[in-house]
Design a protein around this nucleic acid. Structure first.
Length: 339
DNA sequence: CGCGGATA
DNA sequence: TATCCGCGG
């Protein structure tokens, strides 16, 4: 998903509290997909209710959203609209990979290879329209605004950040930088270490921030050149040039300055490159609208999660008490401002 | 992923 | 109090 720039840039670790009071435009699809693929049992089975309906996405969204609210962060979830026609091939390929992964998952479970099973299960994840609707219901009960982008959610979120309607984009992908977002925040979770399943290894997962300006300085490229670089590497809208990865692409862009020059020099062609550039430079978006972070409907949340998804009452109650404390600390804060 | 009981 | 580990749904 998206262009991989991780080899070229370095993130600055931050704490969630650094984002307190900030509006973060979150790529909803990216986030839900992350939950759906990672919130699974050892053999790869996602969480589900007694009827077999998957609940992983709802679980992740609920606990994370509560944490963000508790930190005083103002999230707005931006959902994807229609995929661009240029993405059709990528979507088709993904579906094939997903179907293949489903078979390989089953096979790995039979063979008892749980590590492989979990990884294949993650790859087999599919976010359904029902899951998206469930997420929207939960967000509304939590008083968190969400909106539907006409096209790419990442593009809408980025334009909002560029216009100052949001402070940063929240996503695991780098595409928001191509879309011109001034800041990108990854790992929008409580910082900590995470054990890799079936392994004695840990990875640190801490929120990290990346600033567009810093990235461009480091790459020694303009944003337009970075977009051209992404086209060389390969993104959702094209397959890139065989043999050119991030390191080569950045060198070529620095040397030749534009995609046209690189294509001429290397005697290669990227079809519809001008159109793809424009997708990043002029993404289809809806105009600014007022966003409201309303009160949390605690009872509504609890009823919804309990009745539709079999969430346990005691867990729900302890999470809701966190929100109750949040409420009182907020009114405390406004009192402090008053005096 | 995120929680919370277990463990030291 | 900090870290580990396995379950949640």
């Amino acid at each position: 998903m998206g262009v991989n720039l991780s080899a070229l840039v370095d993130f600055t670790p931050i704490s969630l509290s650094h984002l307190s009071g900030k509006i973060i435009a979150i790529d909803a699809f990216n986030t839900l997909y992350q939950f759906l693929s990672s919130i699974r049992q050892a053999d790869g089975t996602p969480l589900s209710n007694s009827s077999g309906k998957i609940t992983s996405h709802v679980s992740g969204l609920f606990y994370r959203s509560v944490n963000l609210l508790q930190e005083g962060i103002k999230p707005v979830f931006v959902f994807d609209g229609l995929p661009h026609p240029l993405k059709t091939l990528t979507i088709q390929k993904r579906r094939e990979i997903r179907n293949r992964a489903m078979e390989e998952w089953e096979k790995a479970v039979k063979e008892g290879d749980m590590e492989r099973a979990r990884s294949k299960a993650a790859q087999s994840s599919r976010l359904t329209p029902e899951m998206v609707e469930e997420a929207k219901v939960l967000l509304e009960l939590l008083g968190i605004p969400h909106l539907d982008a006409p096209g790419e959610g990442e593009g809408q979120a980025s334009v909002m950040a560029a216009a100052g309607e949001a402070w940063a984009v929240g996503s695991q992908d780098f595409d928001s930088l191509l879309f011109g977002a001034p800041r990108l925040v990854r790992n929008l979770s409580l910082s900590g270490r995470r054990k890799l399943p079936r392994r004695n290894e840990y990875v640190s997962v801490t929120p990290e921030i990346l600033e567009l300006e810093v990235v461009l300085e480091r790459l020694e490229l303009t944003r337009e050149q970075m977009i051209d670089m992404a086209l060389l590497i390969g993104i959702d809208f094209n397959s890139g040039i065989k043999g050119i990865g991030p390191k080569t692409a950045v060198k070529l862009m620095r040397k030749h300055g534009s995609l046209e020059a690189v294509m001429q020099e290397k005697e290669v062609n990227i079809p519809k490159f001008q159109e793809i550039r424009d997708l990043f430079l002029k993404p289809v978006t809806i105009p600014a609208r007022s966003l409201e972070w309303g009160a949390v409907d605690a009872k509504g949340c609890m009823d919804y999660l309990h009745e539709q998804f079999d969430f346990g009452t005691s867990r729900l109650e302890s999470t809701m008490s966190k929100l109750a404390k949040l409420k009182s600390s907020r009114s405390q804060k406004s009192l402090d401002q008053w005096f």
